[in-house]
Write a protein that binds this DNA or RNA. Sequence first.
DNA 1: CCACTAATAGTCAATTTGACCATAATTTGT
DNA 2: ACAAATTATGGTCAAATTGACTATTAGTGG
Lengths: 231, 231
Amino acid sequence: MPPNNFPDSIIDTLSIDCLIFGFKDGELDILLVKHAEGISKDRWALPGGWIQYNESIDDAANRLLHSLTGVSNIYLEQLRAFGHVDRYPANRVITIAYYALVNADNYSLNPGFTASDVQWFKIHDIPKLPYDHNEILYFGYMHLKQKVMNEPIGFNLLPKKFTLHQLQQLYEAILETSLDKPNFRRKLLNMNLLKPCNEKQEDVSHRAAQLYRFDKKMYDKLREKGFIFEL
Amino acid sequence: MPPNNFPDSIIDTLSIDCLIFGFKDGELDILLVKHAEGISKDRWALPGGWIQYNESIDDAANRLLHSLTGVSNIYLEQLRAFGHVDRYPANRVITIAYYALVNADNYSLNPGFTASDVQWFKIHDIPKLPYDHNEILYFGYMHLKQKVMNEPIGFNLLPKKFTLHQLQQLYEAILETSLDKPNFRRKLLNMNLLKPCNEKQEDVSHRAAQLYRFDKKMYDKLREKGFIFEL
DNA sequence: CCACTAATAGTCAATTTGACCATAATTTGT
DNA sequence: ACAAATTATGGTCAAATTGACTATTAGTGG
């Protein structure tokens, strides 16, 4: 497929790195893989790979994410490209970073071909990563903080059905603040983006909370009328 | 400098495209160049170029912008990478798009080596551009709309000293709405981000308005205390 | 049935917003 | 010199939103 003067993949020039966010036990997590080979063997790093000649960069990111988690249809967006000259030691590699929001309950992890291990790390307990991966992580986290304030994407980190308290804990974890419970409830419910399920929480040793789901159709409708999600 | 198995530049694989926003006569503008050679000869397109092997992608964007406008220290940020397989007809090219905000009064334009002409186009009067440049433009414009609501970057499109009315017109042009004048004044002034100059507007056939400048130091100080710019 | 925990409901003052109206300062035409 | 036009700037006021709380309710576990 590629013309004669091109390699089979755009290998060694352009890579993809994924920032995969999860949420568990009230804390924000990042998925890291332990490299089984190459320059950074035995070190934890962001999962990534090479872009093939005949796939778009979005496809490449989805392929990598799928091979790692076994799940498709995950919330995935490009963060941006990172291209310092010396970010990769062996040769010049520019990487395009993506970030994904997943509900960690939904699947089992799979180290894939080039990794020997996969593991969730708490966002505040990340080891020193190779290359500029810590910088990418920091940038992505700041981006998420910003984004979560202005778009209803946090739901992707929760199960389909969730309680208001879970949602609040999620925002508290991401934004690193504490929020007033009654005020948080009031604000979210007044947006009309949460549709109550006919179900309640189970197996809790106190009054069971109402379960809600994010009403995407309603969100689309409201947005057409000029509604802007906020906080 | 590059190892033997690499071309002098990452030419033909990775390009940079710049979305340069300007503001004039109450309208938002985009700078386009007319290609003097290559596949899209004689067509208007986003200014761009190739990334050299020994410069970072940010450096490459700055270099291109400088060669086009003759000015440095322009507000310039990466938008994102665009990488559909068939976005470029001859071969596989991934482009990293940047957007810049400039005060169009400050400099003269220079078509550079590969362009035969440079010109400002009103944002609502953009011709059909080659490749995916219209898509990049649309994405960048949406990004600017979003960004301008949450960060005080609009000032980069105005002269150092400006009136509140100019600022309002700028926001109206970007956001495509009309704003209430007294309310806009009240909101902006209450933020304490505008430092009044000891000067007034000149050569206008009505009461001259106070000139203000954006107080970046104050903004940094307020942001440390948790202030978030909005609208 | 009592203690505990968290859900849910409600209060209230302070602040911010949206929709206005009023006045002040200039310039231009007569 | 004065009126008309034009834009800047300064207010008002009710409605909506926010922040900081208090109160009540439902369910669990001893």
